[in-house]
């Protein structure tokens, strides 16, 4: 807008009622004396109303879409059953991974290594390692199964126990499109095809508006696949993005991914845990307290 006088910059604030009482009064007087300013105010008010009508339409459309979609199951009794099923499924996956790791030769390049020992902390700040590093002593025979750390196994079990599935509908957003990679990934997730979910999100670009939702979903799929290191890196990226609401949930899931990855003894894990514990309004505050007390009791 062309700047014609001292009041022209304040039109938006005036129309929103955000001027101080004195400024508001001065503006009213100026409007009475300046016909052009008065016309400008009315023009701006009309633009406000048109824009608000557009915003209202967007909200109505979103709610109509939500109304037409089937509602998720009613919470209390069913949700516990769902979590129980997920927990059993997760335990089976973790057990399968454990057996696989136990029987796999250490030299196999693509396989998941055991969680790092707490004696050899892996620091994920400022950047996470590109892949979890296998722990191998010089005298170890590469053909023999590597010993697993009992404490890390307990951490893994704890992480699995505390993990809860994310809110799919929040991830899905308002305008699902069947051809959308995020939509494809969500469908794969619902079918528990986590490899397909990760794969669908491989090429999503950082300038895509759904990028952070996609990274969040990828992180969960990686977690489900037992790829705790990559999952931690993905959750850390979301947590550090400061994109609400994704970042706060990512703070919590990052703790679980680090825990499962054997990094509970690291300074990075402690810093992340302290961050959540220092914010009583954080949605993961209670879980973080539970996590802390469970870790301290071990």
């Amino acid at each position: 807008m062309e700047n014609k006088g001292p009041y022209y910059d304040q039109i938006d604030a005036y129309l929103s009622g955000q001027l101080e009482p004195g400024e508001q009064e001065a503006m009213r007087k100026a409007i009475g004396q300046d016909a052009a300013l008065a016309r400008e105010i009315e023009m701006r008010r009309l633009e406000f109303d048109v824009s608000e009508a557009l915003i209202a339409d967007v909200i109505r459309q979103q709610l109509q879409r939500l109304q037409s979609e089937p509602s998720p199951p009613v919470r209390p009794p069913k949700i516990q059953k769902i979590y129980l099923i997920w927990l059993i499924a997760a335990i089976l996956v973790v057990a399968a991974i454990g057996i696989y790791r136990w029987n796999r030769p250490a030299s196999q390049p693509q396989a998941m290594p055991p969680p790092a020992s707490t004696d050899q902390p892996k620091d994920i700040v400022p950047s996470l390692p590109s892949a979890p590093q296998a722990v191998q002593t010089p005298n170890e025979n590469p053909q023999t199964p590597r010993p697993t750390n009992e404490q890390n196994r307990r951490y893994l079990a704890l992480a699995t126990e505390l993990y809860q599935n994310p809110d799919f509908e929040t991830l899905r957003g308002a305008a699902p499109d069947a051809a959308d990679p995020l939509e494809t990934a969500l469908t794969a997730w619902q079918k528990q095809d986590y490899t397909a979910a990760v794969s669908a999100l491989r090429y999503i670009k950082s300038n895509d508006p759904k990028y952070w939702r996609a990274v969040t979903l990828r992180a969960h799929a990686q977690f489900k696949l037992g790829q705790f290191g990559p999952a931690a890196r993905s959750f850390a990226a979301v947590a550090d993005s400061k994109m609400m609401p994704w970042c706060e949930d990512a703070d919590g899931y990052l703790l679980l991914a680090l825990l499962a990855d054997g990094q509970a003894g690291t300074a990075a894990f402690r810093a992340r845990l302290d961050k959540v514990l220092s914010d009583t309004g954080h949605p993961w505050f209670e879980q973080a307290k539970t996590l802390q007390s469970r870790l301290n009791s071990k």
Binding site: Q62, L66, S71, G173
Partner: peptide, 12 residues
């Protein structure tokens, strides 16, 4: 996206 997510939350 934040607005969409909170509308889903408020609705559901």
């Amino acid at each position: 996206p934040q607005r969409e997510a909170v509308f889903v939350y408020l609705y559901r």
